[in-house]
Design a protein around this nucleic acid. Structure first.
Length: 466
RNA sequence: UCCCGCGUAGCUCAAUUGGCAGAGCAGCCGGCUGUUAACCGGCAGGUUUCUGGUUCAAGUCCAGACGCGGGAGCCA
C-alpha cells in the first residue's frame, strides 16, 4: 500500500488491482440507488477528483461515510479498479475511509458544493482554492511561474532579487506606499515644521518598490542577462478588473542589445510561457474553455503560432487615421494610444500580437533612449488580441550627456540618480528590457475576467483582508 | 478619482401600482438495484446592508452612510 497523489492515480501510475492510499478533501458525495456512496476526492494535484466507491460493508459507512459533505478531509485506502461508471476510467474501491476533519454545520459551509459568484468567493479567499476554478487558476499560475524561471535559466539569465523596500523617491512609475516606523500620533518635526524623516527607520523616506528596473540595470551591467520576478506595489486608487495594488512583475534586462532585440526577446518569452501552459495544463485549460472562456485554448494556440507584427508608433497613428473608424477618444501624434486604439490595431487591423515601437518622447519615461529623429524614444508596447497592452519596455539611454539632459528636461534631481548615472560613466553599453505583468499573463491564459481572481489574496483600494 | 448600476434565506435570485417575503441550489430526514450538476418526497432556514424620513401601510419611495460590481482614467 502506497500513498499517492490523485494525479498519479488517474494517470495510471498505480496498476489496476493494487492498493493505494490518497489524502484529500471531499468535493461531492453522491448516494446511489444501490445503497452505496460515490465520494469525489480532490487533493489539488490535478483538475479531476478521484471517485471513491464506498460500500455499506465499511465499518463506518452508516455512521460516517454516508454523512460526508463538501470540504471534509479524508484518508482513503482501497483498490484501484476500472470504473463501471461513465465519467472516469479508474476509481478507488475503498477498504478504509478515515475522516480527519468534519465540516461543522455543513448548512453554513461557505464553499458549499454549488455555483458561487467570483465576487462572493473573494469574501472567502481562504476557502476559494478548494473550488474547481481556483484550483485550476492556482495550477496555471504555478505552471507560468515555473516557465518564467525555466525560460530565463535555459537562456543564461541570472535571477536578481531586487529590493522590495526602496529609498528611490523618484522612480516615476506611479504613486508609492510609504514604509515607516514613525509614530503617526507623535511625528518628529524639523525646525521648519516638516516631518523629520531623519528620525525614521532608514534615516530617510522609504517606499515599497514600483519596479525593480533601475536596480536590475546595475546587475545587467555586470551579468549581461538578468531578470527580476517579484511583487511590486502601486498606490494608485484605480479600481478596475486589470489593476492590483500588489502584483507580481517579470522584468528582464539585456546588455549589448537594442529595441529590436528587446522585442524579439518579448516575443520568444511570451510564446514560451503559453506553450508551457498548453503542454502542461491541458486539464485546467479544458475547464476554462468549457466554463469560463470558450476561446481560451484557441487564443493561446494562435498566439504561439503567429509571428508578432512590428509597427512604428507613427505608422500606427497613420493606420488609425486611415481606418475611418469613429473612436470615442481622438488619436493624434504625440498622445498615448487609448485602449480602443490598441484593440483596433491588434484585433482588427492585424489580427495578431503587435509590437508598437518608437513612441513620442514627451509621453515616455526619462530612462528611455532618445532616437536620432529627436522626437521619439526607443520604447515599445506589446499588444495582444483580447487583452491589449501586456508588455511595456524600452531600450535604455546609455549616453550620460543625453540622460542628464532628459533628467533636466523632466525636472528630476540628478543627485537622486547618482548610482544610476554611474552606470553610464563606467563601461556603459546599450541595453534594453521590459516589464510583464504576471497576473495579466494569467488572465490572458485562463480567460478569467477579473485580475483579482488570479492572485491568491488580492490587494486593491480598501481591500487587504486575509 | 469620475460616471452608472446593485445590496432580500448559507449561496444564486423572485416579489406587479407602496398592500400576507418566495423559489432553486446547499443542509437535514426518508425513499430509490453504479452515481456523474443524480432523481423523488418531506423538513428547516429571514433584523430585506445600516441610519433617518414620507405613508394607514416600505423589500419597494426619499436622504445619507457603508459595501460590491461595470465602465473610464492611470498603467503592468
Amino acid at each position: 500500500m502506497t500513498t499517492m497523489r490523485i494525479s498519479e492515480v488517474l494517470r495510471g501510475d498505480a496498476a489496476l488491482g493494487s492498493s493505494v492510499t490518497v489524502q484529500g478533501w471531499v468535493r461531492t458525495r453522491r448516494d446511489s440507488k444501490a445503497g452505496m456512496s460515490f465520494v469525489a476526492v480532490h487533493d489539488g494535484s490535478c483538475f479531476a477528483a478521484l471517485q471513491v466507491v464506498a460500500k455499506p460493508d465499511l465499518a463506518n459507512y452508516t455512521g460516517e461515510v454516508s454523512h460526508l459533505t463538501a470540504g471534509c478531509s479524508v484518508v482513503v485506502t482501497g483498490e484501484v479498479v476500472e470504473s463501471k461508471g461513465k465519467g472516469q476510467s479508474v476509481e478507488l474501491q475503498a477498504s478504509n475511509v478515515e475522516v480527519l476533519g468534519w465540516v461543522e454545520d455543513p448548512e453554513n459551509y461557505p464553499a458549499a458544493a454549488k455555483a458561487h459568484t467570483f465576487e462572493y468567493l473573494r469574501e472567502i479567499a481562504h476557502l476559494r482554492p478548494r473550488t474547481n476554478t481556483f484550483g485550476a487558476v492556482t495550477r496555471v499560475r504555478h505552471c507560468l511561474a515555473m516557465a518564467v524561471h525555466r525560460f530565463f535559466d535555459t537562456n543564461g539569465f541570472s535571477w536578481i532579487h531586487t529590493p522590495i523596500i526602496t529609498a528611490n523617491d523618484a522612480e516615476g512609475a506611479g504613486a508609492m506606499f510609504r514604509v515607516s516606523t514613525l509614530d503617526l500620533a507623535n511625528l518628529p518635526r524639523t525646525p521648519e515644521g516638516k516631518v523629520d524623516f531623519a528620525e525614521d527607520f532608514f534615516g530617510r523616506e522609504a517606499h515599497l518598490t514600483v519596479s525593480g528596473q533601475l536596480n536590475v540595470e546595475t546587475y545587467c551591467m555586470a551579468m549581461s542577462k538578468v531578470y527580476t520576478f517579484g511583487p511590486t506595489f502601486r498606490a494608485e486608487n484605480s479600481n478596475t478588473a486589470r489593476h492590483l495594488a500588489e502584483f507580481w512583475m517579470v522584468e528582464p534586462e539585456i546588455a549589448f542589445a537594442d529595441l529590436a532585440a528587446d522585442a524579439d526577446l518579448a516575443e520568444e518569452f511570451l510564446k514560451y510561457l503559453f506553450r508551457a501552459v498548453l503542454d502542461e495544463r491541458g486539464d485546467d485549460l479544458a475547464f476554462f474553455a468549457e466554463r469560463i472562456d470558450p476561446d481560451c485554448i484557441s487564443r493561446l494556440e494562435a498566439f504561439v503560432e503567429s509571428s508578432f507584427e512590428r509597427m512604428d508608433y507613427t505608422d500606427a497613428i497613420a493606420a488609425l487615421e486611415k481606418s475611418g473608424k469613429n473612436f470615442e477618444f481622438p488619436h493624434r501624434w504625440g498622445a498615448d494610444l487609448q485602449s480602443e486604439h490598441e484593440r483596433y490595431l491588434t484585433e482588427e487591423l492585424v489580427g495578431r500580437p503587435v509590437v508598437v515601437m518608437n513612441y513620442p518622447r514627451e509621453i515616455k519615461a526619462f530612462y528611455m533612449r532618445c532616437n536620432d529623429d529627436g522626437r521619439t524614444v526607443s520604447a515599445m508596447d506589446v499588444l495582444a488580441p483580447g487583452i491589449g497592452e501586456i508588455i511595456g519596455g524600452s531600450q535604455r539611454e546609455e549616453r550620460l550627456d543625453v540622460l542628464d539632459a532628459r533628467l533636466d528636461e523632466m525636472n528630476l534631481n540628478k543627485d537622486d540618480y547618482w548610482w544610476y548615472r554611474d552606470l553610464r560613466r563606467f563601461g556603459t553599453v546599450p541595453h534594453a528590457g521590459f516589464g510583464l505583468g504576471f497576473e495579466r499573463t494569467i488572465v490572458y491564459a485562463t480567460g478569467m475576467a477579473n485580475i483579482r481572481d488570479v492572485i491568491p489574496f488580492p490587494r486593491t483600494p480598501r481591500n487587504a483582508d486575509f
